Simulated scan of single mutants.
Amino acid sequence: MVPWLAHDDPFPPVERALGALSGAPGLLAASADLLPSRLTDAYQRGIFPWYSDGQPVLWWSPDPRMVLRPADFKVSDSLRKTLKRVLRDPVWEVRVDHDFPGVMRACADTPREGQRGTWITADIVDAYTSLHRAGRAHSIETWFDGERVGGLYGVSFGRMFFGESMFAHKTDASKIALSALVGHLRRHKIEMIDCQQNTSHLASLGGQEIPRRAFVAHLKQSVGLPPIPWAFDKSALLDVLARQ
């Protein structure tokens, strides 16, 4: 039985999430609220919300957990050429936190194979925008000729980044944003990006699954550390290219 959380109820231990043989592996709890305080507590425990419009808020902590270590980020030959071109040509920009709600809406509006609709509801946009105003959520945006053509957003606590969603309206635009993020995180010795669920796309970029206990142990060491600065541009790509 998945517990229903009243307004002030704490999350149960993540070990109580439904197992692999259930119909919803990783499901931990449900609630009616999506307050920023609840989100803050969730991320620091290795829990995230994922639900569809019309459902209660569903809280998840899967085992294993998909992560991307910046040190393991893979750059294909074609992406390497693209990143060099981005660095060389001033028509390309990487902006950070220029339009956080706009990036979320773009992620919500981008069609995805095998997925009907979006889990990025109006309530999700409002809740994460509140985290953004508090300096806890960030967008990394790819701009071409004055137009935003791709990007991603996620949550950051201490020395941990939790990736949420990406979009691209131009080839490799989301990978450019991710590459810049990886370069920035490498510069600040961030060891792990949470990717939540396994996908072939993330695996092709160097993502891998780790046991939930290892993920939570890393989380406990990382989220309480001093936060890193969130101001950078496309020069962060240099750090990615230099280490390949």
Rank of each mutant, 00 (worst) to 15 (best):
R88W: 09
L83W: 11
Q208V: 10
A6R: 13
P227R: 13
R105I: 15
V216R: 06
R159T: 06
T40I: 11
R159A: 04
Y128D: 00
L202E: 00
D41K: 12
D53G: 14
P111H: 08
F162G: 02
L178V: 14
T110M: 14
V57R: 04
Y51F: 15
A42Q: 01
L152V: 07
P101D: 06
P36R: 04
V67Q: 01
E93A: 10
Q221I: 13
V103W: 03
F100G: 00
T142P: 03
I193Y: 03
L18C: 08
H201C: 05
G19I: 11
V155Y: 01
K74E: 02
V240S: 01
S22T: 14
A30D: 00
V103K: 04
G102S: 11
K234M: 10
R95H: 14
Q244K: 05
L241K: 10
S165M: 06
I47Y: 09
P70S: 04
I47D: 02
P56S: 08
T129F: 05
R69A: 14
I47V: 15
R38N: 06
R186I: 14
S156H: 01
A231T: 13
L39V: 10
E164F: 12
D63C: 11
E191I: 11
M1E: 14
R16K: 15
G154D: 07
Q197S: 12
K84L: 13
D194A: 08
V2G: 01
V67E: 02
T82D: 03
V149Y: 02
V149Q: 05
L202V: 13
M166V: 08
T171M: 08
W230N: 06
S130K: 09
A106L: 13
L35M: 06
P229Y: 07
H218P: 00
D63S: 15
G114P: 07
T121P: 04
R95F: 03
R186N: 04
D53A: 15
A134M: 13
L181F: 02
S179L: 07
A214Q: 14
S222V: 11
P62A: 08
L58R: 04
L27A: 09
T121W: 02
R186V: 14
V67W: 02
P101N: 12
S235L: 09
V155D: 01
G117H: 12
F100R: 02
L35T: 15
L21H: 09
A42L: 07
V2T: 12
T82H: 03
P25H: 05
L35R: 13
S52R: 15
F157S: 03
